[in-house]
């Protein structure tokens, strides 16, 4: 039954939930900023040292005086995520085009649910399978001392971000009006020409959003990468080399370190940088979306 009191209560409840949604990420950001700045203010490291030097040897005590260069982890994250994109994007786009343009019926009925299953698999499972199947496989095929490598990390991440990119891209392609396709076919264009010159350009911005979403997920993934990358805090020697990323170094060291120590403060700083990076990705998506909206007008 309609009742004004009830409506007000619910309106208030929904508003509260909305405000909480806004407050939480801001609160997390502030928390990370406070925790992370100890490295600079309390232990007197410089941002230049943090970003551009490579020795990460912070002391697990309250005195400090270690070295806090995170360049290896930042570069490690960039390389592994870049590699994952390089592998995942072609597959994702091909899959998206296949399930919308080439075999829409079969694609929607079977391929799409199949891809969506990927999303639900927990990252620890990906990591574990990577560790027990992919790592020995790489070791045997390429005769390596170990299969734990940048390549293994890239492949595992690629498999993980493939479904997010594919589903977003498929939605974007499906959203291109049928009339545009029909007009092109009417002019005598082949299916490839329609896909390549009409559909893909029209879907471009949304597809890019999907790619960035995938990249953001790749950047934030710790567990699965940690299990296959060999966690070596040095620049990788090629694609079969080992390295560490921002997320793996936090995951592997946080448990042993004392709260408030220089080493722990350094990890909080890395966490804050990760937060800033994900903020940056979100802004990027919004900028691209805004540009796309303008163009479509």
């Amino acid at each position: 039954m309609y009742s004004k009191g009830k409506e007000k209560t619910w309106k208030f409840f929904v508003l509260l939930c909305g405000l909480l949604m806004i407050a939480l990420p801001i609160a997390i950001g502030i928390f990370l900023a406070v925790k992370g700045n100890a490295l600079f203010y309390q232990y007197h490291h410089t941002l230049g040292e943090f970003l551009f030097t490579t020795t990460w040897k912070l002391k697990d005590d309250l005195v400090g005086g270690g070295k806090g260069g995170a360049a290896v982890f930042i570069v490690g994250s960039l390389i592994v995520c870049g590699l994952a994109l390089l592998i995942a994007v072609p597959f994702s786009l091909a899959a998206a085009i296949f399930m919308t343009e080439i075999a829409p019926k079969w694609g929607t009925k079977i391929l799409r649910p199949a891809v969506e299953i990927f999303v639900g698999i927990p990252s620890v499972v990906y990591g574990w399978i990577g560790m027990t199947v992919l790592v020995p496989f790489l070791q045997n095929v390429f005769h390596l001392k170990t299969g734990r490598s940048v390549l293994a990390g890239g492949i595992v991440l690629a498999v993980m971000i493939f479904p997010s990119i594919t589903t977003v891209a498929a939605d974007a392609i499906r959203a291109v009006p049928v009339s545009a396709r029909m007009a092109a076919y009417g002019l005598g264009a082949t299916r490839w020409q329609v896909t390549h010159q009409i559909v893909m350009p029209a879907a471009q911005t949304s597809v890019l959003t999907g790619v960035i979403l995938g990249l953001a997920r790749a950047f934030g993934e710790a567990l699965a990468v940690a299990m296959v990358i060999g966690k070596t805090p040095a620049f990788p020697k090629g694609i079969f080399g080992q390295t560490a990323t921002m997320t793996t170094v936090i995951a592997s060291r946080m448990a042993e370190l004392m709260e408030g120590s220089e080493a722990k403060a350094g990890l909080w700083t890395i966490a804050f940088i990760l937060y800033l990076i994900s903020l940056f990705f979100i802004f990027l998506i919004h900028i691209i979306a805004a540009k796309g909206a303008k163009k479509n007008k």
Binding site: V135, Q139, K145, T146, R148, K231, Q242, S252, R253, A255
Partner: peptide, 21 residues
Amino acid sequence: EAMENDNSAELQKALQDTNGS
């Protein structure tokens, strides 16, 4: 350069599947 491991059980696994470790 060294592979780092969160705990001793993980270190055991890494030794098992890395030659020359």
